[in-house]
Design a protein around this nucleic acid. Structure first.
Length: 581
DNA sequence: GCCGTTTTCGGCCCGACTGTTTTCAGTCG
């Protein structure tokens, strides 16, 4: 039936939406949302396991009932209960849940009182002034709904990590000069280094919060102020990016940073751990629980993140791991990975020059790499099929190799490796003949055409390319461009197994538009014993700076330095590159 | 719907802000 984990997760999410709208038990709704997240974050392919008649592993938050529903989905592609619910709830109503400020209760009011079942109809009603008459709504709500819909219908994008990081840096500098501000930090998905960021979360410490929030709201780049209170403020920048600020006293810094960094699922796990120890965790600290309700006792921890984790019996957990994908268990068992850091990278195995579509010469790129602490750099320009990129044919490639040899003879502070980013043609044949590839040190295979082949054909094409004995690295394996082009349809499990069999490394492109391998595939590669190469794919000198984002993505994928090819010394990398299987 | 070395029933994370109220529900993160 071809049900992927993502399909199953989507079905559970729809169940949650529909149950929410039908006013079901909120904990039941949460169980479905939780299950959706768990299934969506799995490395193993559930449908494949069921197909092969194997036992499903015990998954947290998935009991007998949800396991049975997973089986139904995997075998039939349908969930009878979901189909039933769909008939009971007007189509389109779940779209209204996506409107900021609207939850299940208010959507139900809109549906019952005005028969509104779509965002377009809702916008019309808001403009006609029909919303303000409803119980629980007013002129301000109507205004906000109209504004949110207009923004949403014209699509509110998520921002690439590298872009959001620039706004965050500027705001941190501004905030640090605020009244009574002691410390400023970024939190949220930005600190967890997710590949895209929906909004920016900032944290500041100060004795008096209200002044800081007012100073924040008056920031020159703010277009609109959404909220402004004694400890929290929220603004929209001129670029459309939303920024939330939280201000806490110094002694709560660690607890607040933890709380504001998330993820939500990670926080809930921590709060449950606290409850088990008769403690209570909130953004102000970890406290002894006293009786029921909101009353709390003496503070146990909170000044630093480390102190809170320690009081819960855990070592500090890196933000990139905080997704409730097993990091709590790993921490408890002392099995947290020693995550790779940027300084562990000793080289870069994919970069371009003016020989194809790069903007800098071989000499300039080498100097830029050296200035950023790299000891070696592979020059891998495009192959001839990329004619728009001035791709290299065998004759030009041979001349470039001679150039590189001359460079290496003259320079001792960095070593260049000869290479190519070679196009994979339609049936998995490479763009250059073996005679041209054989003398090279690094052949990076890449797909730049026919992205919409069906899954089976695309996979066969990639597997065939991997059978070429000269291929050592598979470039940006899913071809996606964040926000521009979806990943092409590929059986990554099969590709990773083939890489293992052929001793080919998978590239994690640090280019901000790509940032692929995605985190889940990094973990898959690690589990299968396939090396990852974190490469810049730099077309200009400053693009070596992107390597830090590649490293961040690798950290989200639980990778240690030992799992990454270009943390090795030049001699070790050359040995590895020469190996054939 | 899940979960359990005190439990197979009765819990389920927790607080801030807003708008619409006249003390609080709904939404959000």
């Amino acid at each position: 039936m071809g049900m992927t984990n993502a399909d199953i997760a989507a079905a559970f999410d729809q169940m949650a939406d529909l149950l929410d709208l039908r006013n079901a038990n909120p904990f039941r709704v949460r169980a479905y949302r939780n299950a959706s997240r768990v299934v969506g974050g799995l490395k193993i392919d559930l449908a494949a396991l069921i197909d092969a008649d194997k036992e499903l592993p015990k998954l947290p938050g998935i009991g007998a009932d949800l396991e049975e529903k997973i089986r139904q989905l995997a075998t039939s592609g349908h969930l009878p209960e979901l189909d039933r619910l769909r008939k009971q709830v007007p189509a389109g109503l779940t779209d209204l849940l996506r409107v900021p400020g609207l939850g299940p209760r208010r959507v139900r009011v809109l549906s019952d009182a005005l028969g509104l079942h779509s965002q377009v109809a809702l916008l019309r009603a808001a403009r006609d002034g029909r919303i303000r008459e409803l119980r629980g709504f007013g002129p301000a709500s109507e205004e906000r709904i109209a504004a949110a819909l207009e923004a949403q219908l014209s699509k509110k994008p998520r921002y690439k990590l590298a872009v959001a990081a620039q706004y965050a840096d500027a705001l941190c500098t501004y905030l640090a000069k605020g009244p009574g501000v002691i410390e400023v930090a970024t939190a949220g998905s930005l600190r967890r280094a997710r590949e895209t960021v929906g909004d920016i979360d900032l944290l500041a410490t100060a004795a008096e919060g209200g002044d800081v929030v007012r100073y924040f709201a008056a920031c020159p780049d703010a277009k609109r102020v959404l909220a402004s209170g004694a400890t929290r403020g929220s603004i929209v920048l001129k670029s459309g990016l939303q920024v939330d600020l939280r201000v806490v006293p110094e002694e709560s810094y660690g607890a607040a940073l933890l709380y504001f960094t998330g993820s939500k699922a990670h926080n809930i796990r921590l709060r449950n751990l606290a409850l088990e120890r008769n403690l209570k965790l909130n953004e102000y600290g970890l406290f002894r629980a006293r009786g029921r309700g909101r009353e709390v006792g003496a503070v146990v921890a909170g000044r630093t993140e480390e102190s809170v984790y320690a009081a819960l019996g855990l070592p500090w957990i890196a933000p990139e791991l905080r997704e409730d994908r097993g990091e709590i268990e790993a921490a408890r068992n002392g099995e947290l990975p020693a995550l790779i850091e940027r300084r562990a990278l000793r080289g870069d195995l994919h970069a371009h020059t003016t020989w194809s579509d790069g903007s800098a010469t071989i000499e300039q790129m080498a100097a830029g790499a050296r200035a950023r602490g790299l000891e070696y750099l592979a020059i891998s320009d495009h192959s001839r099929r990329r004619s728009v990129a001035n791709g290299l044919d065998p004759e030009r490639l041979a001349r470039q190799c001679a150039d590189i040899a001359r460079f290496n003879a003259r320079h001792a502070d960095i070593t260049l490796l000869t290479g190519i980013e070679c196009d994979v043609l339609d049936d998995g044949i490479l763009d250059l003949p073996d005679s041209a590839l054989a003398p090279l040190e690094v052949v990076v295979a890449a797909i730049h055409s026919r992205f919409n082949l069906p899954r089976q054909k695309q996979t066969a094409r990639v597997l065939a390319a991997l059978d070429n004995p000269h291929v050592r690295i598979l470039a940006h394996p899913v071809g996606r461009l964040i926000g521009l082009r979806e990943p092409y349809d590929l059986d990554m499990q099969a590709v990773i197994r083939k890489c293992k069999a052929r001793a080919v490394a998978l590239e994690l492109s640090a280019h901000p538009e790509r940032l692929a391998l995605q985190d889940l595939y990094c973990r898959m590669a690690k589990d299968e014993g396939v090396l990852v190469a974190i490469n810049s794919d730099a077309h200009a000198v400053h693009e070596f700076d992107n390597l830090v984002y590649g490293v961040a993505q690798a950290r989200r994928g639980w990778l240690e330095a030992g799992h990454v090819l270009n943390t090795r010394s030049l001699a070790q990398v050359r040995t590895w590159l020469r190996e054939r299987r």
